[in-house]
Amino acid sequence: MTLLPVLLLAAGTYAFRLAGPLLSQRIQVSARVQRLLTLSAIALLSALVATATLTSSGGFGGAARPTGVAVGAVLAWFRLPFVVVVVAAAGTAAVLRMLGVP
């Protein structure tokens, strides 16, 4: 990967961040539009979680990763600290791979 896509992403992201403070002095976004913007972020992030958990290079990515993610997800569901969730997910996948699970 080269510097150009990074600069484009940085500039675009900063523009999104700056647009809010600039716009808020002028117009009022409806609650419905705000809700839809939030929901679109939820849809994108959920899709990212699903694909990052189960796929790699367009196919199934092996059992160790989804098992680790599932352990982390259960801990998150029961409101354990974020660090515990992250470490447990990684640790589970690492141990499974050490045991030869792909």
């Binding site: 990967m1 080269t2 150009l4 896509p5 484009l8 992403l9 675009g12 992201t13 999104f16 961040r17 700056l18 647009a19 809010g20 403070p21 716009l23 808020s24 002095q25 976004v29 539009v33 705000q34 913007l37 939030t38 679109s40 972020a41 994108l44 992030l45 990212l48 790699s56 290079s57 367009g58």
Partner: peptide
């Protein structure tokens, strides 16, 4: 890393970051 083009990567990243627009209106 998955073999996608940098253009698709930047567009996907920007779409994900569009939520900062309403954020900015809230915290201005």
């Amino acid at each position: 890393a998955g073999g996608g083009s940098p253009v698709a990567a930047v567009l996907a990243g920007l779409l994900l970051n569009a939520r900062h627009l309403p954020f900015g209106m809230v915290v201005s």
